[in-house]
Simulated assay, not measured.
Amino acid sequence: MNDKHMNFRPALLAALLAASVLAGCGKGQDTKAAAAPATDPNLVVVSAEMARNFRAAPLALQAVSIERDVPGRIEANEQLVTRIGASVTGRVTEVFAEVGARVKAGQVLARVTSPELTNAQLAYLRASSASTQAERAVERARQLIQADVIGSAELQRREAELSIARAELRASADQLMLLGMPEGYIERLREKGQLNSYAGIIATRSGVVIERKVSQGQVAQPGDPLFTLADLSNVWVVGAMPEQDAASVVMGQKVEISVPALGQRRFNGKVVFVSDTISPDTRTLVVRTQVDNTDRALKPQMLATLRIIGQARQQLAVPEAAVVRDNDRDHVFVQLAAGQYRLTPVDLGPASNGLRPLLKGPAEGTPVVVDGAFHLNNERKRAELE
């Protein structure tokens, strides 16, 4: 009997001990599960030593100038553009200027042979002859009146005829000048009587030939624009602004122009024209500035970008270094406590002088990480992977 009790007692103790251990383990797991908080992927907790690498500052009002980039192109200044055509109907016999050529005022660009010009020269020679004859008649009448051969009425009649002849001569000379004949040629025509069947197409100003619409053998008509000259020392930069931004641009705003073909070089100007109409095809309005181009670096039809700078105004803004791009959205880190930061989505405007205007997000005075946000975001991602 004593032996049976002795054998049963160790077995009972072993069973009780095993149950106790199992119960204790289950209780510990339940306690641990209850104590584990739900994880927040946007919350970052760092040690005090690491927190010294991040600097936070309260959100405050900043002087921000709204900047907008508008695509555009270089164009010739239309106020410095001249379209030149033939002054008579005729056939083009020679062309002297090509596109891109620099010409001076008075330079002959092409020549036209014209029967109209020949007829006008003949009319001038007849008028010149009539004027010379009328001058001689007046001189003869003055001699006769001194000899008391004719009366004063005859002298007056001849003087009237001289005035008419001189007026007709001036009109004929003006007609030749309108047909493109230089004044020197007209004087030579009167002195020598030699006809010139060629009319020159003359450059009326100095500039660069940017368009040519004439070829040898072509029949030219008055009014046809055969050459287009432009003074490229000052050019236009024309941009196309989306209609939703139309209210943000006004005359006189500063503009910074960049041209990809010219690398990092920048040009400055002001808005000189804002269209009152919207293009129905592109839903944009025309914005224009003009820029000095004394070195001819800007060429018509070059692509450009206009950065239109608005007036500075006070609004909440964050430094560009504080912005973290995640899931195609802008975020900032808001400091909750020492060593605790939360990634917070925000809506921001375009950058201006290193600042991004805050359109939607934390309130004024909220501490935001302004230095080290990129590394803090890396720490957040590393914690997610653990």
Rank of each mutant, 00 (worst) to 15 (best):
D3W: 10
S47C: 07
M50Q: 15
L59Q: 10
L59I: 12
Q62A: 14
A76C: 04
T82E: 12
A86S: 15
V88H: 12
V95S: 05
A97V: 01
V99N: 04
V99G: 04
V99P: 04
A120P: 03
Y124N: 14
R126F: 13
S131H: 11
Q146H: 06
A165G: 13
A165M: 08
R166C: 09
A167L: 15
S172V: 04
Y185T: 07
Y185F: 03
I186V: 12
L189Y: 02
Y198D: 15
V208W: 07
Q216D: 02
Q218K: 12
V219C: 02
G223D: 06
S233G: 03
A240M: 11
M241S: 08
P242F: 00
K254Y: 06
L262F: 06
R265G: 11
F267R: 09
F267M: 06
S275I: 02
D276Q: 15
D276G: 15
D292H: 08
R296K: 12
K299N: 12
G310T: 05
A321P: 03
V323H: 08
D326A: 15
N327K: 10
R329A: 15
Q340S: 09
Q340L: 00
Q340N: 08
L343G: 08
D347H: 06
S352C: 03
S352E: 07
L358V: 03
K360Y: 02
T366P: 04
H375Y: 15
N377A: 13
